[in-house]
């Protein structure tokens, strides 16, 4: 393992231990309730970035994959009475398949056409759920949390820890892809797809891999929503918020490195929670808008880009 790899895994272990310690120490459930939401966006932003950041294919349909994950979990609960782990795996599988199918149908389209097609997927899927009585249709469905709270004292704490695990897994997957030949090929697609093709980079296959993994992670992030919210209806499960934030966070954090979407989601997500808890949830939207504009204009490479520029400048000043 490389030094950077060792550092990553030590960091990942530290994050998980810290989260575990937090659940043991902190009494107020609110922290975990809010932390769950922030971490869900860490997973979503990271997942979005695999296709949107590395390959440059902007997915406007994150909500389709999150919603598919949530409803896959609902089906798992209603039909199979499956435990949370199975719900998440099933959701990842279904959303991954959805990603693959979407990719197969749309990845021959480039640029804005691909983005429009992903919006259509979200709309089609929501309409399908609205008309499916088994999962509650348009009125939604009530999900009862299991009474057993498991090892961690409270169900919310347990869900928080699950989301910590998913976040670490998502970052690890994104990082592994990034430093592999797949990541290299995806960067080539982003930079000049025609050239990538004529060099013998299997562009369609790489894009399909990215689309499937990205979709599966989004689905996995959507699955715990069923028991987290305990009441699910299509409009919120397929909320446009997912699509917008999953795209805004990597842009704020930086799309070139796996840490970009993680940082963007932590910063953005935390700020959102603070603003909506202290001021109002309406102002929240203003904050998103202003931050996006500031970053797009002032730091198009995001936080990671700013940091790299600063590091380069320091290195430049250090050498004569």
């Amino acid at each position: 393992m490389t030094r950077a790899g060792a550092k990553f895994w030590v960091g990942a272990a530290a994050v998980m231990l810290l989260a575990l310690a937090a659940t043991a120490i902190l009494k107020n459930e609110y922290w975990f309730y809010a932390g769950f939401v922030v971490l869900q966006f860490v997973v979503l932003a990271t997942a979005w970035n695999i296709l949107g950041g590395y390959a440059g294919y902007v997915n406007f349909g994150t909500s389709a994959f999150v919603g598919a994950g949530t409803y896959a979990a609902i089906v798992a609960i209603k039909a199979l009475a499956a435990p949370l782990g199975v719900q998440i795996l099933l959701a990842a599988g279904i959303a991954g398949l959805l990603g693959f199918a979407t990719g197969l149908l749309t990845l021959r389209l480039r640029g804005i056409f691909f983005s429009i097609a992903t919006v259509a997927v979200a709309i089609v899927l929501e309409t399908f759920i609205v008309n499916w009585r088994f999962v509650g249709g348009s009125t939604g469905i009530q999900i009862l949390r299991p009474v057993d709270t498991g090892l961690f004292g409270s169900y919310t704490k347990m869900l928080f820890l699950v989301m910590v695990g998913l976040s670490v897994a998502a970052a690890a997957i994104a990082r592994t892809l990034e430093i592999s030949w797949i990541g290299r090929g995806l960067r080539a697609v982003r930079d000049n797809e025609e050239a990538a093709e004529s060099c013998g980079v299997p562009t369609l296959r790489l894009k399909l891999i990215a689309c499937t993994i990205s979709g599966a992670l989004m689905g996995a992030a959507g699955a715990p929503m069923a028991v987290y919210q305990s009441y699910i209806e299509p409009a919120s499960a397929f909320s446009l918020n997912y699509s917008i934030l999953a795209l805004a966070m990597p842009i704020v954090g930086g799309t070139a490195h796996w840490s970009g979407p993680v940082l963007g989601a932590l910063l953005f997500g935390t700020l959102q929670q603070v603003v909506s808890a202290t001021i109002s949830s309406e102002l929240n939207r203003l904050v998103i808008g202003v931050m996006l504009i500031v970053f797009v204009v002032g730091a198009p490479a995001g936080i990671v880009g700013l940091w790299r520029k600063w590091a380069a400048k320091r290195a430049g000043a250090g050498s004569p």
Partner: peptide, 11 residues
């Protein structure tokens, strides 16, 4: 070797 080189300019 494509016409106009077709490199990956940012890489």
């Amino acid at each position: 070797v494509p016409e106009g080189r077709r490199l990956f300019p940012k890489l």
